[in-house]
């Protein structure tokens, strides 16, 4: 009887070992497909891996790579007050002062602006006569995040909701060191987005 019990328990242990090991094997195979650089041959499988990895195992380990960002961003905004009927001066919005001076606040805004700048970089490939085409950027998520942030920040600081808001994104490039073989950065540039009507939604 005792021997039979021991045998049963061994069978269970082996079954658990194989099932859990199998799960871990599949888990890490998906992890690698999900996180390896685009240049790797696993890239075509990324869609399948994503279905498993997102939302609870989502990860990415580029960590300031392949290259460190070479730009600094300045977010400015102005708003139209319906009663006054005129646009305000441009105001900086890179941080959450005076609401908080928490160190993570500016880093959070910078991450958001980096995504808008990435969209700008991609979509400006299709510009006309050197005039930026904003249609694709202003229908993308990062731009809406930034608009929402600017409106909400204004509301919390000034206590009013503007009727229209307009964003201006300044892009400053880090000068390259003399010994670097990276391409010389373009000139600093500023992008003024079209006015955005603020609704209650």
């Amino acid at each position: 009887m005792e021997r039979c019990k021991t045998q049963q328990s061994k069978t269970l242990q082996r079954a658990v070992f194989w099932v859990f090991s199998g799960f871990l094997f599949v888990h890490f195979a998906f992890t690698l497909v999900h996180t390896l650089p685009d240049q790797m041959p696993t890239y075509p499988l990324r869609g399948i891996a994503r279905a498993y990895m997102v939302p609870f195992f989502h990860q990415g380990w580029a960590l300031f790579a392949p290259d460190v960002p070479q730009q600094q961003f300045d977010l400015n905004y102005r708003y139209l007050d319906k009663q006054e009927g005129s646009w305000s001066e441009w105001m900086p919005a890179n941080d959450l002062q005076p609401l908080t001076s928490h160190p993570r606040a500016t880093q959070m805004v910078e991450k958001m602006l980096m995504l808008v700048a990435r969209d700008l970089g991609n979509n400006l490939t299709y510009n006309n006569n050197d005039q930026p085409q904003y249609e694709l950027v202003t229908t993308a998520k990062p731009y809406f995040f930034t608009i929402y942030y600017a409106v909400r920040r204004h509301e919390l600081i000034h206590g009013t909701r503007p009727a229209y808001i307009q964003l201006k994104l300044g892009v400053r490039h880090t000068a390259k060191p003399t010994w670097s073989r990276i391409a010389t950065p373009p000139e600093d540039r500023s992008f003024t987005f079209p006015p955005f009507e603020v609704t209650d939604e």
């Binding site: 650089p37 580029a62 790579a65 392949p66 290259d67 073989r181 990276i182």
Partner: peptide, 11 residues
């Protein structure tokens, strides 16, 4: 992976 990504860049 952090090392591999860095190796693929220039900086």
């Amino acid at each position: 992976l952090a090392g591999l990504y860095k190796l693929l860049g220039v900086m």
